[in-house]
Amino acid sequence: MGFDTVRAYPVIILALAIGPIFGGGMGVLLGLLIATSVPYYARVMRSSVIAQSSAEYVEALRAMGMGRARIVLRHILPNAIGPILIIASMDIPAYITAEAGISFLGVGVKAPATSWGLMLDQGFRYVGHTPWLVIAGGLPLILATLGFTFLGEALRDAFDPKLRRRG
């Protein structure tokens, strides 16, 4: 349960708490997204490797006297990495969303660099005068997140019908 809490901890709130201390910017944004994702990916990889380790081909390799490291790196890893690739592709929209949100709050990407989230933030400041800046800033975000979501779903259906969307 403790793990679920860490996983569920809203990255947005973490960004607001930590971003200003480190000054925001691309590096902090990346650090946050990576730090909050690593445990989840580690858990998926763990169960995937465990599943592969009990496969017959691993037993055969062991019987042939192959070293542990070689079995893991050459044979288990390529077979176990599939779910991670699918999850990663399904996570792309989540990262785009997180970037947009964090930059909108002013603790992510900062000018003179730019991003869609920053466009939203800047557009929202003028929303009283004209709505078109935020509308224009939001459309590519919607299209990109939708597009990558459908891509992720299609990849999952093609390669691993059993892997459900995480809950």
Binding site: V134, T145, F148
Partner: peptide
């Protein structure tokens, strides 16, 4: 479901405000 999950909440809030309030 797939579409609703993927749209960033900040955009839903802003577009909702523009459409239903403004």
């Amino acid at each position: 479901s797939v579409s609703l999950i993927s749209v960033p909440p900040v955009i839903i809030a802003i577009y909702g405000m523009l459409l239903f309030s403004a």
